[in-house]
């Protein structure tokens, strides 16, 4: 079964590399959304430093949402999902493998771009490490929750809008603790408590989300 999961992740990574556009779009959206803020709120460095953490997190969250709709859609439409379900991996494992590949192809580029954008938004360099750590711990949770949403809206018309409505409220805890971690180190406090909370959220999502997504996929296949 591990070989089967590896095969799915390998195929999805290869597809993402060949079709490049999806992961590129997410990063470009992330960069543009962050760069728009100085134009909107004015270039005063202290204002930007105050809102930087929130802007980065909200932009990253929306960018991650952008490509979620296609997570299972392509496999559902071309019949691959039927064949995946008929293979050795159970549906929760299939969902977990596809979510992992989605995180690798969309969230990792976002994390890599975040420090550069933090510089543009005048975030104090002391907060950079906690920003990256918080993103590393928080974005997998976003992908996992998003995966459940993507499986639920499979086959629905206007699935993308429905997905945003379903998933965005569930992103709030990650947003709160992600921003708090950066904010704490910005004013010289310890970021650890918030990072621990992000870890806890990740562990809960890791246990529950693949099963929920697998159950939703089962509904879509029937």
């Amino acid at each position: 079964m591990l070989a089967a999961i590896g095969a799915i992740i390998g195929r999805d990574l290869r597809l993402a590399l060949r079709q490049g556009l999806d992961s590129l779009l997410a990063v470009v959206f992330f960069v543009l959304a962050c760069v728009l803020f100085p134009f909107g709120v004015g270039p005063a460095p202290e204002t930007l430093a105050r809102i930087a953490a929130g802007v980065l997190w909200v932009a990253a969250l929306l960018a991650a949402l952008l490509s979620l709709e296609r997570l299972f859609q392509a496999d559902y439409e071309d019949g691959s999902l039927d064949l995946l379900a008929l293979g050795p991996a159970p549906l929760p494992a299939i969902a977990a493998a596809k979510i992992a590949a989605h995180w690798l192809t969309t969230a990792v580029p976002l994390i890599a771009a975040a420090p550069v954008l933090a510089l543009i938004l005048n975030l104090p360099p002391a907060a950079f490490s906690s920003l990256v750590l918080a993103l590393v711990l928080g974005t997998p949770t976003l992908s996992l929750i998003g995966g459940v949403g993507a499986a639920l809206v499979l086959g629905a018309r206007r699935g993308g809008v429905l997905l945003a409505l379903l998933v965005l409220p569930l992103y709030i805890p990650v947003l709160i603790f992600g921003v708090a971690a950066v904010g704490a180190s910005q004013i010289g406090l310890a970021a650890q408590p918030h990072l621990f909370m992000l870890t806890a959220l990740l562990l809960v999502a890791l246990v529950l989300a693949p099963w929920a997504a697998g159950a939703a996929l089962r509904q879509a296949l029937d």
């Binding site: 290869r14 597809l15 439409e77 071309d78 019949g79 691959s80 039927d82 064949l83």
Partner: peptide, 8 residues
């Protein structure tokens, strides 16, 4: 449905 990925 043939489950073929055009990019591969």
């Amino acid at each position: 449905q043939d489950a073929i990925k055009p990019a591969l």
